[in-house]
Simulated scan of single mutants.
Amino acid sequence: MTAEHALDDPPLAPVRRTANKVPEVTAYFWIIKVLTTGMGETASDLLARTLGPIPAVALGGLALAAALAVQFTLRRYAAWSYWTAVVMVSVFGTMAADVLHVGLGVSYAVSTPAFLAVLAVLFVLWYASERTLSIHTVRTRRRETFYWAVVRATFALGTAAGDLTATVGFGYLGSVVLFAAGICVPALAHRFGPLDAVTAFWTAYVVTRPLGASLADWVALGHTRGGLGLGLAPVTLAWTAAIIGCVGYLVVSQRGRRVLAATGKPQ
């Protein structure tokens, strides 16, 4: 599923060339996105068990801040920087949802709609400010700030939603099937129905989080919890290796870049 040019800002006479700060949406994008969601889920749990919840959250927060700082200093999309930031958002987003549930006792039935409300507010503010939610035009500091705020909210929401379905009867494997079917809905609605590309993209983006997290949990967790029992550390390392391999391919092949025409002022 890819976002279409027709839904970007109206074309204006090009004055300069500027690079987008996020990758083109291709099959590689969705594969790495699912890998990062699963790796973030198991890595977060592994860090919390190894270091303790508070040190793990502190380390995750510092790593996220460092990754985003690097991402914001770059003038164009770079695969290694972008996907490092996504991985850190995934790890910290999992921690944020888990802290609410484990540390503060907030149920997933409460945190899931709460994170959904936060995401909705961010979308409203982004659109009110920029008049677009298209990822094809993330080339100003303000749009990039909105973009990463939304990404962080989607990861926290997806973590809570995946854990919610896993604990209300679906289990981890059932959640994988549920969200795998769910991600087909915006794809088909966009391809054969009235759903616009931007809405379809963000809907699928949200659903990939619980899909990847549920898949990783099912593979890593023990049989008593309905999983295959391969372990948090092996799954984290395996998915990290897969991410490094995919991103390395993108760096070498230069796939995922997009250079856009722009006017001298933000659209």
Rank of each mutant, 00 (worst) to 15 (best):
V185G: 05
V70A: 13
V219H: 04
V110N: 11
G60N: 02
L119W: 03
R17V: 12
P113E: 03
D9M: 13
A238K: 06
F92R: 00
R49G: 13
N20F: 01
A120R: 05
I32Q: 07
G169P: 05
L59D: 13
A200M: 02
V235D: 14
T159D: 07
A66S: 11
L68F: 13
G227Y: 07
R139S: 14
A204C: 04
A187G: 05
L237F: 13
V22L: 12
F192S: 06
H190G: 15
F155P: 09
R76M: 00
L7W: 15
P10V: 03
F72N: 03
T94C: 00
F155L: 12
V34A: 13
K21E: 00
D163F: 07
A97Y: 14
R141V: 11
L211D: 05
A97F: 13
A233N: 11
V219Y: 09
T203N: 04
V110D: 06
K33A: 08
L164P: 04
F123A: 00
F29K: 06
L51P: 15
V25T: 12
I243G: 01
L228Y: 14
E41I: 00
E130D: 06
I54G: 11
A216F: 01
A241I: 10
G162I: 08
S253E: 07
R49M: 07
Y249D: 02
G174T: 10
L7P: 07
Y108V: 14
G169T: 04
T84F: 08
R16W: 11
N20R: 13
G52K: 01
M95S: 06
Y147Q: 00
V99L: 15
V219K: 10
V124H: 07
G158K: 08
D163R: 14
H5T: 15
W80Y: 14
V87S: 10
V219Q: 12
L62T: 14
H190Y: 15
L133N: 00
P53K: 07
G171A: 01
V91M: 04
F29V: 04
L230K: 00
L62F: 15
T154Q: 06
A160Q: 09
F29I: 01
T224C: 03
A120P: 09
V259W: 05
A220G: 13
S44T: 06
L260P: 05
T167I: 10
G248M: 12
Y82N: 04
V99K: 11
A238Q: 04
L211W: 08
M95N: 11
A153H: 09
Y205E: 12
L51R: 05
L74M: 08
A213D: 10
T42F: 10
T132W: 04
I135Q: 08
M1N: 00
Y28L: 12
G52N: 09
G105C: 09
L215H: 11
A261C: 08
T224D: 15
G182Y: 07
W126Y: 13
G60V: 03
T37A: 14
F170N: 09
L68A: 08
